[in-house]
Write a protein that binds this DNA or RNA. Structure first.
Length: 645
RNA sequence: GCCGGCGUAGCUCAGUCGGUAGAGCAACGGUUUCGUAAACCGUAGGUCGGGGGUUCGAUUCCCUUCGCCGGCUCCA
């Protein structure tokens, strides 16, 4: 056999004997690389290090530094988990076990539930298998022969997968007692796994189908070293610390109560003031941008929802109807028909377009009982909703303005990074979508062109559009790197037609307007939840429910403290006087735990100089400051909505 | 809705192998008057999530229902 030529990523080419393994190639470069390598990419395909190379090709060794490295490593960790489970629980039947964004999981069918104690046992067994340094052995089978083998082992879930997905000759990987139908590649052996941890067990369904076999999903994560794993676990702790449900209670921002019902939010005074600030900011911006503020009823005749189509395709998400004297009425799950009613209330001219109708519209949606989650998923919520009715030639400017507006909102609330997704239709299935193909083309083109023109990088999501139109979603990234989908800008080709919307054009003829649906916060409740977690409850001055707490050193200083608090309140600051009979230390601690931005200590010295001793929530004692000067500084921070101060 | 776990004082939690419950913090009353993260003493507070069953007796065991938590599915 002639030698083969392998080309490395740096462009150099070396000659190797026919049938050389990827591992031997790595060794020829250096022992360090051979020790680190996890897999290889040959001719664009990921393969095991043990695979034999039989023709000339480009080759790249996958190491922990490669983007694919971690995924392969975690996938192998999932196999390790399954191997450990099969050792301990031979009655468990493996389902699927992929790597995920933050770790891996493996699904098992087993009548008996896994407990926390089982997880600990499994983890110990995994460590044992790591010490045993078992190879990930690749074997290939003919489809019939392989199927028979898995049938004999009683692996009915695997058999189903093989029947559905396997090529005539398919690969499987053996790790100890565990044999998995799997494309690979895998790391060479279990000894390479350095830091792995099981996290939780949860229910799942075979193939995500709720009518299918109930499975138990064991979640875990793996990293290349203990330090990274610890950092990840610390991150999980941090997320827990920021949990808005915890902080909502601790800071007395909101509650959700059994007595009233799940998914229904009570905004307490402190949450309420934050909401007011958010809404005031948005309302001012809406007016400045040519939006008009409207209000629409919370219920309407079911007929309206029949016209809109919601009564049909959105029924499972709506509250049940109420029968009144004259007709069935429906609690609104969306604001669009209301705004359409306003548009339709009179004959519209092209001169009135674009018409931008905005409302903080409270909607009610029936959510299945298991899906509610704090403020992030509720049954009653308020959207910062707006519908823009415009002529086709106005689309691009309107879209650009919406995206620009969304960016302003994100930066105002201290979000520094975001991701944009453009969801377009699946061109192969035109029947799934409402509206003419040419409208879709124009709208998708307009969205894409606008984003490109604005220099905003975006991900194109083929087939992700809703049936009534394409959309742009903005995902913001919070302080600890988690993405949240909030802002959305959507086209709607369906509703203008359903409601027979028109405007009279310059040509004197009737035309159908285009409708854009957009929400920037998405829902005020969800946004608030995200905001709480983003700031970990430590809101910037302009949002803080209590901006400053005045702390008299002793009872002697109460009068002066009262006058300071009074002056602050007269100047429209949210100041609170803590006149409790507690030691200063205790009151400082309470203010600190309540995350009050400014603590103003007043005693003899301060009274004499008509000032306060400022303690900042973040950096502590900041020394004496005359009251007038302090108020000027606070005013500036609040008016500019300063995020950092 | 489904799988698993959990509901004890306002909060965080302990406890009862079946004999109707405790701690810390918070609240309230008093003492203390204090300089940047918890003063001291005292008082009060619970149909042990709701309903049903077994039992002489249930907060404890069983059933059921509501809710919460982790996921699945779905989503602003």
């Amino acid at each position: 056999m002639p030698n083969i030529q392998l080309t490395f990523p740096d462009g150099t080419t070396k000659e190797f004997p026919h049938g050389v393994t990827a591992l031997e190639v790595a060794k020829s470069i250096g022992p360090r690389l051979a020790a680190e390598a996890l897999a290889a990419r040959v001719n664009g395909r990921l393969v095991d290090l043990s695979s034999r190379l039989e023709e000339s090709a480009p080759i790249q060794l996958i190491t922990p530094n490669s983007p694919e490295g971690l995924e392969i490593y975690r996938h192998s960790s999932a196999h390790l988990l399954a191997a450990a489970v099969l050792e301990l629980y031979p009655d468990a039947h493996p389902g699927v076990g992929p790597a995920t964004d933050s770790g891996f999981f493996y699904d098992f069918y087993r009548p008996q539930p896994f407990t926390e104690a089982d997880l600990a046992k499994i983890e110990l067994k995994m460590q044992e298998l790591v010490r045993a340094d078992l190879p990930y052995e690749r074997v290939t089978f003919g489809k019939d022969e392989g199927l028979k083998l898995f049938e004999e082992k009683g692996e009915f879930l695997k058999c189903e997968l093989i029947r559905e997905k396997a090529e005539p000759v398919f690969s499987a990987y053996r790790t100890g007692k565990f044999l998995d139908f799997c494309r690979g590649p895998h790391i060479p052996s279990t000894g390479r796994i350095k830091a792995v941890k099981l996290l939780s067990v949860a229910g799942a369904r075979w193939k995500g189908d709720e009518h299918s076999h109930p499975l138990q999903r064991i979640y875990g994560t793996a990293f290349f070293n203990q330090k990274e794993l610890d950092a990840h676990l610390h991150q999980l702790e941090e997320a827990k610390r920021r949990d808005h449900r915890r902080l909502g209670k601790d800071l007395d921002l909101f509650s959700i109560q059994d007595e009233a019902g799940p998914g229904l939010v009570f905004w307490h005074p402190k949450g309420g003031i934050i909401r007011k600030e958010i809404e005031d900011f948005l309302r001012a911006e809406l007016l400045a941008r040519g939006y008009e503020l409207v209000y629409t009823p919370h219920v309407a005749r079911l007929d309206l929802w029949k016209t809109s189509g919601h009564a049909n395709f959105y029924r499972e998400n709506m509250f049940t109807t109420m029968a009144l004297d004259d007709a069935e009425y429906q609690l609104k799950p969306m604001n669009c028909p209301g705004h359409i009613m306003i548009y339709k209330s009179s004959r519209r001219s092209y001169r009135e377009l674009p018409m931008r109708l905005a409302e903080f519209g409270t909607v009610y949606r029936y959510e299945r009982s298991g899906v509610m989650h704090g403020l992030l998923r509720v049954r009653g919520f308020t959207q910062d909703d707006a519908h823009i009715f415009c002529a086709p030639e106005q689309i691009e400017d309107e879209i650009a303005a919406c995206v620009e507006f969304a960016k302003l909102v994100l930066t105002t609330f201290g979000f520094e990074r975001y991701e944009v997704e453009l969801s377009v239709r699946d061109a192969a299935e035109p029947a799934k979508y409402a509206g003419a193909a040419e409208d879709w083309e124009r709208a998708e083109g307009a969205l894409e062109k606008t984003l490109s023109r604005m220099g905003i990088p975006f991900k194109r999501m083929e087939g992700e559009a809703v049936f009534y139109g394409p959309k742009i979603d903005v995902k913001l990234i919070d302080a600890i790197g988690r993405p949240w989908q909030l802002s959305t800008v959507q086209f709607d080709f369906s509703l203008p037609v359903r409601f027979g919307l028109e405007y009279v054009g310059a040509d004197g003829r009737a035309h159908t307007p285009l409708m854009v649906h957009r929400a920037l916060l998405g829902s005020v409740e969800r946004f608030f939840g995200v905001l709480i977690e983003h700031y970990a409850g430590a809101f910037p001055l302009w949002l803080a429910p209590v901006q400053a707490v005045v702390l008299p050193v002793s009872e002697k200083h109460l009068d002066y403290a009262r006058s300071v608090a009074g002056e602050l309140r007269a100047a429209k600051f949210r100041a609170h006087l803590d006149d409790r009979n507690e030691k200063l230390n205790a009151r400082v601690r309470d203010a600190q735990l309540q995350k009050v931005p400014l603590m103003l200590v007043v005693g003899d010295r301060e009274a004499q100089g008509h000032g306060v001793a400022v303690r900042r929530r973040d950096t502590g004692d900041a020394g004496f400051r005359p009251l007038a000067e302090l108020m000027g500084w606070m005013r500036e921070l609040i008016d500019t909505r300063a995020v950092k101060w």
